[in-house]
């Protein structure tokens, strides 16, 4: 996803000379081509995230289009108040690009895990949150973020994710039904969409028809797609690579509760904890029960099968 983002941004920068790329000393060698092809439009601002966001706001106030890139916790939490005031309160077109969504940096430990970012970013007025699930979607999300006139947070994974989607028609705020189905719905987004699709396969093998909705835009969330699925299927699961507090599961819960859907519903995410276990992203997914078998099992329990 990271390479897809930078390739997309390279193309966009050729079309729009207001685009600048800022990094807080993250991204070894990956920005060299951008730097060489667009002199003066790539800046490494050092390990100083708060300043990077303030600088980005100053650039945006000067009619530039900055993309500010670093690892998610340092970006969204260290510099949170700069994002709140400088970017969101002033409603500036700054694209905040975080790498390492969820447990992408599994072995690096909890300092590098991005497990509360959606919760804090969702709470900010004017903020749009895009969470691509694969490289194609990351490319589309980058372009959509550039076209959007306001703050955007792009939650990338790492690099080399498998292709899950084929979006010629990516639209901010519009969910994508990536699998049709009528018995149960799994709502997901980001690289863990892969597990949702595998769980749908497992359920299909049991003769259960499983809809999978890809919420690539966490905010504004596509309430219509969620409500339609809630009405048309018998149960709903949200699978997310984030704390169960404040993320996609919370957002979907809010929609279901306020619309009195009254159908079986379950959030699958990271419990209220730091993930101190040492291991890769895949290892963490196993630990957390983010597997096709566990998710399919939860669906069967919800449906009392």
């Amino acid at each position: 996803m990271r390479d897809a983002f930078i390739a997309a941004l390279h193309d966009i920068a050729a079309e729009d000379d207001r685009v600048m790329l800022l990094s807080a000393d993250i991204g070894f060698a990956v920005f060299d081509k951008f730097r060489d092809d667009y002199p003066g439009r790539y800046m490494n601002l050092g390990v100083a995230e708060a300043n990077m966001i303030g600088v980005s706001a100053g650039l945006a106030l000067s009619d530039m289009r900055p993309f500010a890139y670093t690892i998610i916790p340092f970006l969204t939490m260290r510099a949170f108040e700069q994002i709140r005031v400088d970017v969101c309160a002033q409603n500036q077109p700054v694209v905040i690009v975080g790498v390492g969504g969820g447990l992408s940096y599994g072995v690096l430990g909890p300092t590098h895990h991005a497990t509360e970012d959606l919760a804090v970013m969702r709470a900010l007025p004017n903020m749009t949150i895009v969470m691509p699930s694969d490289p194609a979607e990351a490319r589309a999300a980058t372009r959509a973020a550039h076209d959007h006139d306001g703050p955007v947070y792009i939650r990338l994974g790492k690099n080399g994710e498998p292709a899950l989607t084929d979006y010629s028609n990516f639209q901010i705020g519009k969910a994508a039904e990536v699998r049709s189905g009528s018995d149960v719905t799994i709502v997901s987004g980001g690289p863990i969409l892969k597990v949702a699709l595998e769980a749908a396969d497992a359920l299909e093998q049991d003769g259960l028809s499983c809809r999978v909705i890809n919420i690539h835009t966490v905010k504004p969330i596509d309430a219509d797609a969620i409500l339609q699925a809630a009405v048309e299927t018998n149960a709903m699961i949200v699978l997310e690579e984030h704390s169960i507090i404040g993320g996609l599961g919370s957002a979907v819960s809010e929609i279901l509760a306020e619309n009195a859907v009254g159908k079986p519903f379950k959030r699958i995410g990271i419990p209220d904890m730091f993930c101190h276990t040492v291991g890769s992203q895949e290892y963490h997914w196993q630990e957390q029960g983010f597997t096709a078998g566990e998710v399919a099992g939860s669906a069967r329990i919800l449906m009392q099968i």
């Binding site: 600088v55 106030l61 400088d86």
Partner: peptide, 20 residues
């Protein structure tokens, strides 16, 4: 030219404006 109130925000914004 910029929202202020929370301290420590103006200088980085000014740096961005100067870069632009």
């Amino acid at each position: 030219e910029a929202t202020a109130g929370s301290l420590g925000h103006g200088l980085p914004i000014a740096v961005g404006m100067a870069i632009a």
